Every structure is written in C-alpha cells, then in structure tokens.
Amino acid sequence: MSFTRRHFLAATGAVALGAAAPALRAEAAWPNRNVRLLVPYPAGGSSDIIARFVSQPLAEALKQNVIVDNRPGANGNLGAAMVVQSDDKHTLLLCDVGALVISPSVYTKLTFDPNKDLRGVSMLAYSPHILAVHPSVQVNTLPELVALSKKERLNFAVTAMGSAPHVAGVAVEQATGAKWEYVPYKGGSQAITDTIGGQTQIIMNGMLATLPHIQSGKLKAIAVSSRARMPQIPNVPTIAEQGVTGFESGTWQGLMAPNNLPEDARQRLAKEMARIMNLPDVKAKLNEQGADVVLMPPAELDTFLAAERKRWAEVVRKGNIRLD
C-alpha cells in the first residue's frame, strides 16, 4: 500500500470516527426520546391522578414528552412486568409501591421479582385508606360495621385480590373478627363506582381517589387508616381509635425504574421529582384531596420497601392469601 493511500484511509477513518462521536454522545445522553410513565392501573385511581399532575412539569424539566400510559391488569403486576421487560431505558413505573412489595407474598407465579428487577427512584406521596360504606348501610362506626358483618352478608370492594386495600381489609378482619366477602376489581375507580351504585356495600381505598365521593355524600366514611385524623374529614375517626391499636395502612405512590436505567439518570429523576412534588400547585392539589407529599430518595425508599415487605408478608401468611 502506498504512503498516500495509507494516509488517505487514516484520514477518512478519523473523519468517520469524528462524525460518529456526536451520535455516540447523543445515544448515551438521557433522555433522548419520549419518556413513558406507565401506570399499572385504570385511569382515575391515586397513581393515575399523581402521574397526570407531574407529567407536564417533568416533561419541561427533561425537555422530552412524558406520556402517561395506563396498563391495568393482575393487580398492577402486568404493567410492572412491562417496565421490567422494557429495554428502551425510557419506561418508568408510577404505582402504589406498597402494593408492589406485597405481590411476591401473594402470587405464586410472577414473571419478575419486584424486589430485584426494579429500583426505587423516589417516594412521592402517601394517601391513607378510607373505609367507607354505601349510604344505605345503617352503621356509622367500625364496631357497628363489624357487628353487622356477623349478621348479614356484606360485599367488600377491593382494587384487586392481593392489593394493598385488600390486605389492609384482611388485617382489620383479623383484628376485629369481622366477616365480609371480597369482590375484586381491576382498579380503585371501578371499585368506587360499584360501591356508589350499591353493588357492593363496603370499600377500602386510597383517600386521594375516594375523598370526593365522601364529600359529595355518595359514600359514607367509617374510618381512616392513618395514624391521626385527616384535616379534610376531621370528624371521621381512625381505625386505631376504634379499637385496632396501632393500625396504619394506605397507598404509597412512588416512582420505580428498571435495572437498566443508568444511575445518573435515576439520581437526576429523584431530584426532579422532589422539586416537582414541592411545587405549590402540585402540593395544593394533592392536599385538597387527602394526600401528603412524602419524599424519599432512592436509598431511603429501598429501606422502606424492605420493612413493608416484611410487615405485610405476615398478614398475608395469617390470612392464607395465595394467588396463581
């Protein structure tokens, strides 16, 4: 090969590498395409409400479109599996993270392990459960509801078998001796609709999605599952006040990511979500509907999830809740 040809090839190779470098940098940058915020429940539930509150400010921060994508099914496990299996690094999961860690205790067959295949980004908000009844049910307190359940068949609407509201309902049963029949739905909004319509008599669901129906009189609140009474409904006592000492449950909305999301992207997301959740309008909208902004960075969220996993696994074991 001549000296001239060797130098020509070297020069053209250098030009090619130089041209490729920006493309490589663009490929490595995150995000470089639309971000999908996957909500594994139907529209209208707590996770969906929060996803739609944060999607626009998050899009502005990331300079990419943020698309809310509802993929309900199997108590949120169908959507969670889609996030785990995604390889685009731009699909995130916004869900009830408390329910997510319950799943391995309940389901004998999962296509993924949420404890290993997903990484916490940030806790976002907490909304206690409201235990409510159709207005035609002639009770006003938890002890009265328990007594009625021993005399009449009461249908108890839950977002799904094995969901956080279902397991919380089982915990109340275990503590009080109540007896009710669980009717599973594909999400909280459908469970609320049927309880308002009288097809079911009892519901336990996140306050964020349920409070408007309490305020309108379509449902009657019996108790809240928080440690203290909620300012939005100060006359409604807690479950703990009504005989179940120390009881607390609720929906914990958080952002999770698949393992292939780069660590710098995860940390950036955590910071942006903390900023967005503290925006006055976002915070006010959530507080009006009974949700508190509760932020946890990745490491703290991991610790919380481990504690919740252990806590609810015992309730599941005692209640013999197992699903295929």
Rank of each mutant, 00 (worst) to 15 (best):
M207G: 04
P231L: 04
I192Q: 01
G188N: 04
P143F: 03
A147L: 09
H134N: 15
P212L: 00
V133M: 02
V137Q: 01
M204C: 15
F156Y: 14
G217A: 02
N155M: 13
A191Q: 08
R227C: 05
L142M: 06
N205A: 14
T193Y: 11
G169E: 09
G246L: 05
V224I: 14
A178M: 11
L145F: 10
S163L: 12
L211D: 03
L219F: 03
A168K: 11
V172P: 13
V167S: 11
Q215T: 06
A168T: 15
I202G: 09
A209G: 09
P165V: 08
A240N: 02
Q215R: 13
G187H: 07
R229G: 12
N140R: 14
P231R: 00
P135G: 00
R227P: 06
I214T: 01
L145R: 05
A157K: 07
Q174G: 12
I202T: 03
G169A: 13
S163R: 11
T195K: 05
N205F: 10
G246W: 01
P165G: 09
G188S: 13
V133F: 08
Q174Y: 01
V244T: 01
E173M: 15
G197P: 06
T200H: 05
V236M: 04
V183C: 04
A147T: 10
G217D: 04
S189N: 13
R229N: 11
V158I: 14
N235A: 12
V172K: 03
A147N: 14
V224W: 04
P237I: 00
L154M: 06
P184E: 07
D194T: 11
V146K: 06
A223W: 07
R229H: 08
G197D: 08
F156H: 13
A164Y: 12
S226I: 02
V137W: 02
L219G: 05
D194M: 12
I130M: 09
V170F: 08
V224T: 15
A178V: 02
I233A: 03
T210M: 04
Q190L: 15
